[in-house]
Simulated scan of single mutants.
Amino acid sequence: MKERILSVDIFRGMTIVLMILVNTPGTWAAVYPPFRHAEWHGYTPTDLVFPFFLFIVGTSIVFAYKNKPIDLGTYKKITVRTLKLIGLGLFLGAFTLTFPFIKDFADIRFPGVLQRIGVVFFFASILFINFNWKTLVAIAAVLLIGYWILMGFVPVNGMESTFDRAPNNLANYLDVQVFGTHNYKEDYDPEGLLSTLPAIVSSLLGIFTGLILTSKQPQKARILMGIGGALLILGYVWDVVFPINKALWTSSFVLVTAGWANLVLALIYYLTDVKGIEFGSIFRYAGANAIILYFLSSFIAKVMGMIKVDGDTSLHGWLFETVYVHDFMSLSMSSLLYALTVVAFYCWLAYVLYHRKIFFKV
């Protein structure tokens, strides 16, 4: 495609900005409910952010590889990008301020956000360049239904399976068996091994949207709206027997989040690419360097949490307490203002990088 679709760039940037916003509050002890993850079943606006990014990864795959010659070099590029993403994620998990700047092996978390993006990108890309859309639909259906069957009907260590946060939850059980102590929590990991299968479908659904956007179909916004509504209905119907759950990345969660992603993207597409209304430029700037902005925000936040400036108080904590906490506003508002300041900084950085034509290709 010679002509870029602005809505895709804006959607990608909006998603990465929201990821930074929800990941960097002033204090986790005071966060408004919409900026928290659901306790277990169900979802909040925050739970939409990561699946939105995997969705737009799939859409971007179409722009990168549709109608392009596929050779050994293509597979090499996909593999190298995958390894870079996984490597950055492992570095974030392993880094520490003390020499040799790597945590003890037992303390390193293997799964993670960037690791999942890398793995999902790899499999979604390989599937896209090897199969037509009809086969991809079948693969997506098999993965979602298969995941439901595995999670709901396969006994776990002699016990009936459950979708609850318990030892007989198959996803939890496999993560503990494979990764041991290298998990987010002792009993679950939101980027775990088995839940990567439906996460791949989140990108496949983005691929289908990308195929529509790059086609000669008229009324693309209307088509995306219809698909989004249909996915929402299917997701909520499936929720009755397979609850919507981000930590498990359930099949119903995949459909509902992809439904919302299509609706949001359809609206942005209609306003920008159809009506020509100019808005969201800052999101377009952020989308051009999405991965590096996310990596920097995570790395700097981690370092600020490690640096001690007043006894056991971290640099992050000291800055928050000194600048943002005041008697005339609630702690939740102070926490949000801190997060918004962080977002403003990375939006400014995105603006500078974009206008200086500096693009980090991960």
Rank of each mutant, 00 (worst) to 15 (best):
K2A: 09
F11G: 01
M14Q: 10
V22Y: 01
G26W: 06
A38Y: 10
E39L: 13
T44P: 01
P45D: 08
F50I: 05
V62G: 04
V62A: 04
N67L: 00
I70Y: 06
D71N: 14
D71F: 09
L72F: 11
Y75W: 11
K76D: 05
K76W: 12
I78H: 04
T82C: 13
G87A: 12
G87K: 02
L88C: 05
L88S: 00
D104R: 12
F105E: 06
D107F: 01
G118L: 06
F121R: 09
F122L: 15
F123T: 13
F123V: 14
F131I: 05
L136H: 01
A141N: 01
L143G: 02
Y147E: 04
L150V: 11
F153M: 11
P155Q: 02
P155T: 09
V156F: 04
G158D: 02
M159G: 02
M159C: 12
E160P: 02
T162E: 07
N168R: 08
N169S: 12
L170K: 04
L170H: 00
A171Y: 00
A171E: 01
D175K: 11
V176R: 14
V178A: 10
G180F: 08
Y184H: 14
Y184S: 08
E191R: 04
A199F: 11
G206Q: 03
I207K: 04
T209C: 15
I212E: 00
L213M: 12
L213I: 06
Q219M: 08
I223L: 15
I227P: 00
F242I: 09
N245E: 07
A247L: 09
L248Y: 06
L248A: 11
F253P: 01
L255A: 03
A258L: 05
A261G: 02
N262V: 00
N262A: 04
I268L: 13
L271D: 00
K275I: 00
I277N: 07
F279L: 14
Y285F: 13
V303M: 06
V309G: 06
D310T: 09
T313G: 03
H316S: 06
H316N: 08
G317T: 09
G317D: 12
W318A: 15
W318Q: 11
D327Y: 13
S330N: 10
S334Y: 10
S335K: 10
Y351M: 05
H355V: 01
K361L: 14
